[in-house]
Design a protein around this nucleic acid. Structure first.
Lengths: 121, 121
DNA sequence: GTCTCAATCAACCGAATGGTTGAGAAAAGA
DNA sequence: TCTTTTCTCAACCATTCGGTTGATTGAGAC
């Protein structure tokens, strides 16, 4: 499943616990124990969540004695933002065009069928 | 899992096939058959994908004879963009603050010969 | 050395996911 | 009516996911 990075990032953020971790990491780096504290799950479960976030490129981990501080990598957000904005813009452009078409159609007959395009990859 | 809408949206877009469907829907509405054409999976599988996208609020489906045209709902993108931008900004603010601290440290070492302040490397 | 702390690895479990095939529903056309 | 087209529903299957407990590693502290 989910071979490319974009898939991994979206999948990582599909979990509320992992989203909350990312949110809290914007306050600064934290250890696994710190991150695990608020949640009602084992520290092993949190460690697994962090592995998912790490493989998505959302966090990195270094070493400080026994601790493994977790650091948020914000650049990956751009990957998502780019994808989202690209298609949101396209959708909005089409909406604007459709709007113009509809306004134009008001002068003509309102009986024609709605066009159904597709397969343009 | 995936109780709230944000989770459902992220989860829906974690699949490359579903992302491609969304991308193609920015060209305009399409039928299930149209959408299924490029993929090497059954039409039932595509129907399932569409159900996921629909439950995430990313698409809506109407009816036109036997066909069920699929329409992209771009507003849901805002939900993601808001979340992403919020935490990206927080992360970047923190980065900028760190940047300022580093810049301040560098001020003590202008482009002239390094005056050997006591700063450890 | 031994002990403790912080975190991961390993095995397991139940539920969800993405795919399949087969049957059926809904609407138009013959 | 019967047929065709379009799509969904219902089982079923293999894999993944999020969680658990138990064992183990890594790095101080004693």
């Amino acid at each position: 499943m989910t071979d490319d990075q974009l898939s991994r990032v979206f999948a990582a953020l599909a979990d509320p616990t992992r989203r909350d971790m990312v949110a809290r990491l914007t306050d600064g780096d934290a250890t696994v124990g710190d991150l695990a504290a608020p949640y009602a799950v084992s520290i092993q479960a949190v460690s697994k969540h962090l592995k998912v976030l790490e493989e998505a490129g959302l966090v990195t981990r270094s070493r400080d004695a026994q601790r493994r501080p977790v650091h948020l990598e914000a650049e990956v957000f751009d990957l998502m933002t780019k994808w989202i904005e690209r298609y949101r813009q396209r959708a909005e452009e089409r909406f604007v065009r459709l709007d113009a078409v509809l306004a134009e159609m008001n002068d003509e007959q309102p009986e024609t069928e709605t066009p159904m395009e597709g397969t343009a990859s």
